[in-house]
Nucleic acid binder design. Structure first.
Lengths: 212, 212, 212, 212
DNA sequence: AATGAATGAGAATTCATTCAT
DNA sequence: GATGAATGAATTCTCATTCAT
C-alpha cells in the first residue's frame, strides 16, 4: 500500500473546508462517518443530527433534503478526486503513462475513501435526483478529463484509433468498478497496486498499438 | 432428491407449487416480482400484499416476518439450484469436466434468475437471521457438494493436491460472485458462456496439474 | 392446607364433561390453562387454538366470540361451585355453622381454582356482556343461596335482624374478595383455613347476636 | 429536595411542570387521564395522542416507548410522594408517631391519586422493563426511607428488635396494598383515615414493644 | 447560525373473526 | 365435527420534514 499520499487526508485539498459553516461541516462529517457502517437508506436524519451534535432541523437549513446531503458529500469527495487526478498526471511523460497513473489514482481514491466509493458506485445511481446534481456534473467533468487523456493518447499514436475513445473510457471505468465493487460490498480491502496493475494489463494489452 | 428438471424456467417443475397454499404461492411470487425492480428494504409488506392480491395479514400467516419470506423465497430457488446442479454433473466423465459444468450451471442460474442472485449475493448477508435459516442450510449443502467434487478431482489426480480444497472452493465461488455482481447491480445481462469460460480459464490454469 | 376434598378435582363433578363435544372441551381446557399464566386480554385466539390442538375457526363454532368462551369457562366453574356449596352445607346444624362452612368452601374454591377466581374477580366485570351471560345468572343463583342461608339464620335467631340481610351478604362477599384478590394478583397462595377463619371472626363478631 | 408542598393537588408544586416541553406535559396528562377509566394495555397510543391533542409521533420523541411513558408518569407521582413523605414526618416526635404519619400519608397518596396507585400496584409489575426504570429506583429510595424510620424506632427502643426490620417494612407495605387494591380495582373510594388506622392498629399491636 | 417543538404519512406486525368446504 | 384459507381493522412505532423563534 506504500507510496505518495501526503494528499492522503481528504480535507487538506478540500476547498470546502474553509467555506462551510461549522454546522454544515459537522453534518457532512456525520454522514460520512455513518456511511462507514451502514447503507444510506438505513441512516436516519435523527442519527445524522445526533452524530453531528446538531438538531435535525439544521440539516434542512443547509441541504434541500436527505439525498441532497448525500450528493453534497459526494461532491466534496469528487472535488478532491478531481484536484488529485489533475495533479497526479502532471510531470508524467506520455499519455499511456499518465493513464496508468490516473487509473492507479482512481483505484487508490476508492481504496482510501471507501465511503466515497460506496456512495458513487452504489448509493446514488438509483435515484433520478442524482443526475441533476452538482455531483453528477463533477463526475462528468472527471470522465471528460479521462476522455481527453485517451484522445491525447490517440493523437500521440500510443493508443489505437480504431476503437471509439468513449468506448475505451467506458471499459476503463467499468473495469475499475468491476474490480472494486465486491470488495466494497463485502468489506474486503482494495489492494490498489494489485488491482490497478491488473486493470492496466488487461486494458493496455488490448488497446495499445502493438509496436512490432 | 433426484428427478426431473433440466428446464430453464424455475417454476415449471418446482414441487413447491403444488404443496403451498395458493396465498403463500402468490405472496412468494409477488416478492420475487417486486425484487426485479427494487431492493428488499424498499419493498413494503403493503406492496407485497397488493401485488399478490391478498391482505398484509396473510403474509404473517405463512411467514414469521418479512425477512422470513425473503429466506423462503431464497430457499425455493436454492432447491431448484441444487436439484439442477446434481443433475447437471451426471453423465459427465472426469471431475474437472464436471466442475466446469457446475460453474457454468451456477453462473447460468444467476443469469436466468437475477432475483435469486441478488437475494443471495446482496440482500441476505447483512442480517444475522439468515445464518439460522433453512436457506443458509441449503447453501451449505450446495457448497459441500462443490467441495466433494473438488475432492474427487484431487483423488483422481486431476486437481492439484497442494492447495486446500476449501480454498479452491472459495476461489471459485468468489470468482463467480465477482463476475456477476456488477451486472446484477447495474442491470446488465450476465453472459453465461463468456463468464463461465473466463472463470474456468483463470481457475483451471491455476489449479490443474500441468501434465507435461 | 389439609382437609376434605376428594372433590378437589374440578371435573369429577362437572356435568359439562360428558355433554361437550371433544373440540369444545379441548378449547375450554386450553383457555383455562392459558389463564394460569396470563390475563385474558393477552391470550390470543391463535394461542387458544394451538394449545387446544384445533383450528381457530372451531372456537367460533362453539362460542359466539372470545368473551363468550370466557363466560362459558366461568359458568362451568360456577356449576361446580354451586354443586359443592349445596353439598357442603348439608348435614350441618345451625345456619351460623353452615355459613362458616360456606365461607370456607368459597375461599377454598378460589384457593384451588385460581383461574376461576381470577376470571370472576378480575376478568369479567368490566365488560357489559358479562351481565347478560349464563355465568352471571349462576352467580346470582349462588348469591341467592347465600342470602337464603343468612335469612335462615335470622329466622333461627342466630343472626341479628337489625341489619338488612342483603347488606350482610355483601359484606361477606366483599370480605372474601378483599382477602383473596392480592394473593391472586401477585401470585401468592391463598391459605384457606387462615383466610376463612379471619373473615368469620371479623364478620361473626360483628353480626352475631351477642349471647350474654 | 426539601421544600414546599403540603398541598393536595399533585401538580401545583410539581417541578416537572416547568421543565417539560408542553407536548410532553400534555402527553403525560393524557395518559393519566385515560388511566382513570381503563387499563394501560387497552389504552392505545392513538388515544393518548388524540387526548393530548398531539400526534402519535410526538410520544416517541419524548418517550422510548409506551411503557416508558407509563414509567415516567409513575416517576413523576413518586417524586411528589417522596417529597411529601419526607415533609410529613418532620416535626413529629418519636419514630412510631412518624411511622403512623407515614402510613397515613402513603394511604392518602393512593386515595388522592388512584391512577398513581393503580400504576404502581397493578400496571408495572409484570413487565421486566420496570425494574430497570427510574421509577423503580425511586420506589427503592422510598422504601429505604421507610426502612430507616423503622430502624430508628428499633434504636429508640419503641419498635421490637426481634423482628428483622426488612420484614416489618414488607408487612407494612403489604398491608397497605392489601387494603387499597380492591378499592382500586372496583372503583370504590379509599377512606384514608379508616384504612390507615386499621393498618396501624394491626401492625403496631404486633410490633410495638409492650411497655410492662 | 441554530434550535425546540411538532407533524403526517406510512412502516411492520397482531388479532379476532368469517366462510366455503 | 372440523378445517384451511383468508381478512379488515387496529396497533405500536419510525422517519423525513417543517416552522416559529
Amino acid at each position: 500500500m506504500g507510496s505518495i499520499s501526503n494528499t492522503n487526508s481528504l480535507y487538506i485539498n478540500s476547498p470546502a473546508e474553509k467555506t462551510h459553516a461549522p454546522g454544515k461541516t459537522k453534518i457532512m462529517a456525520a454522514l460520512r462517518s455513518l456511511l462507514e457502517d451502514k447503507e444510506f437508506v438505513s441512516v436516519t436524519t435523527a442519527e445524522i443530527a445526533r452524530t453531528a451534535g446538531v438538531t435535525e432541523a439544521l440539516i434542512y437549513k443547509y441541504f434541500h433534503d436527505k439525498r441532497d446531503l448525500l450528493h453534497q458529500v459526494l461532491a466534496e469527495y469528487l472535488g478532491v478526486m478531481i484536484v488529485r487526478a489533475e495533479m497526479d498526471v502532471r510531470g508524467i511523460k506520455g499519455a499511456l503513462h499518465q493513464l496508468r497513473k490516473l487509473i492507479w489514482s482512481h483505484v487508490n481514491m476508492y481504496a482510501d475513501n471507501r465511503v466515497f466509493a460506496r456512495i458513487l458506485l452504489i448509493e446514488v445511481r438509483n435515484h433520478p435526483d442524482y443526475f441533476h446534481s452538482d455531483a453528477y456534473r463533477m463526475v462528468k467533468y472527471y470522465t471528460n478529463f479521462l476522455l481527453a487523456l485517451i484522445e491525447k493518447g490517440v493523437e500521440e499514436g500510443s493508443i489505437r484509433n480504431d476503437i471509439p475513445t468513449a468506448a475505451v473510457r467506458q471499459t476503463i471505468l467499468g473495469a475499475i468498478e468491476h474490480a472494486c465493487l465486491p470488495a466494497l460490498i463485502f468489506n474486503h480491502p482494495i489492494l490498489t497496486d494489485e488491482v490497478s496493475d491488473h486493470i492496466c494489463e488487461m486494458i493496455f494489452t488490448g488497446i495499445v498499438t502493438r509496436g512490432d
